[in-house]
Design a binder for these strands. Structure first.
Lengths: 222, 222
DNA sequence: TGAGATATTTTGACTAATCAAAATGATAGT
DNA sequence: ACTATCATTTTGATTAGTCAAAATATCTCA
């Protein structure tokens, strides 16, 4: 049985590794910062992960998930995202508050219960924020990679994911109809003003938001 | 924030205290046995509970929950039992397997999520085994106290609760229609044979079970 | 009242996860 | 090639929860 601390490190490492790209080693400092822990703690945990066969650790180089570790990370992601869907679709919680809840629940839900949740929800492929849910076998669809800050203009697009867990941002996005599934068209992008103006299918008025916010809203061809 | 270990001790203490009756102190040995822990561990935890204001601890006498502690215990019971209902009614798990699951989940479900579960289930008053669910305010109905091993004969009775968490026993009970809500009539009780014979509303044949098993099935007037 | 049995408490040790701070290694820039 | 800087690792300490085993208190019964 793995501790939930170990599970958290593995999950975080997965994200850091994805950000670093292509099986790069993640430096201990990065991992420490991501886990809000001192560097020494990250080092000792790096060794622990290696002992558990979940990662490779090279002194002064960093850590990298092993195939085992990646499998675990994907399993955690599946749990997390299915739980978020349950909380929103069945229990009616707001999408802005489910991340924190799921963060706790993902460590104690059994495989059996998870399967039931999956079935009850009709085997969903994405969570409330649009993030893809890995399959039970550990396969995850490639998520949309273009944001409103860089997409083509004058072309109808579907919002695929909103990549920010901050409740305030999520509430803002919801208030303005910028949730997964919504269709929008960027009418103008002004690099000097660092702003993006767009037309939302449901509303007649134009809406402008800064590129920093726009970069968090991922789209795909409608 | 209280650790889940503390929550577990408080819950267990609540049961031990109920078994001892009337605000009696629970000896450390009892608590240790109930928690499957050495006596020394129970002693040190007793002091910890006292420090947290959850119990009174008197050396060589035992521990007893404080009003605070009782409130917490009832809260844990509410969580546990509502979660069991969710697992059975919404997720379709078997009543024999939900106890273990709930044992984990009860420590990480937030109050908000619990309220949603309560509402979704329509504010149920008992869990799948028939145990009463305390209200949010901490009030719990008095559970049925007469078992098939001691009830009146030749009188139709409703099964109110089945007091055993062992999956094997629960599966047995279910297989023979001895679940909360079922109507049965004891036709005969044989003290020498240590057996109880009963007629189940749904089935024509008589059914006999030993008093040890019968004592786990609590009934109330139909 | 004293001896033995039994329950409880104490003590010392262990593990996982953490921090602070000291030690060490690597890097880059003159 | 030397040194200043920065990242990493080590070391020693802490906390919660646990055990084993030794010490102590209480109870019972003769």
């Amino acid at each position: 049985m793995l501790s939930s601390t170990v599970e958290d490190y593995v999950k975080r490492l997965f994200f850091e590794q994805a950000a670093a790209g292509e099986g790069q080693m993640v430096p201990m400092g990065k991992l420490a910062a991501a886990m809000s822990v001192t560097p020494g703690t990250a080092t000792s945990m790096g060794k622990t992960l290696a002992d558990l066969g979940l990662a490779e650790y090279e002194p002064r180089m960093g850590v990298r998930l092993s195939p085992e570790g990646e499998k675990l990370a994907l399993k955690m992601l599946r749990r997390h995202r299915l739980i978020e869907r349950l909380l929103v679709d069945i229990l009616g919680l707001d999408w802005s508050e489910v991340h924190e809840e799921a963060e706790q629940l993902e460590h104690v839900i059994s495989d059996k219960v998870l399967d039931r949740i999956d079935a009850l929800l009709g085997h969903p492929t994405s969570d409330p924020h649009g993030d893809p849910i890995p399959t039970a076998k550990g396969h995850m669809a490639q998520p949309a990679a273009t944001s409103l800050a860089e997409c083509a203009v004058e072309m109808p697009l579907r919002i695929a994911r909103v990549v920010d867990q901050d409740p305030l941002f999520l509430q803002f996005a919801h208030r303005h109809g910028l949730t997964p599934g919504a269709i929008v068209t960027v009418t103008q992008r002004d690099d000097i003003a660092a702003a993006v103006t767009l037309l939302r299918e449901a509303q007649p008025e134009l809406f402008t938001l800064g590129t920093h916010a726009a970069a968090k809203i991922m789209v795909e061809p409608a």
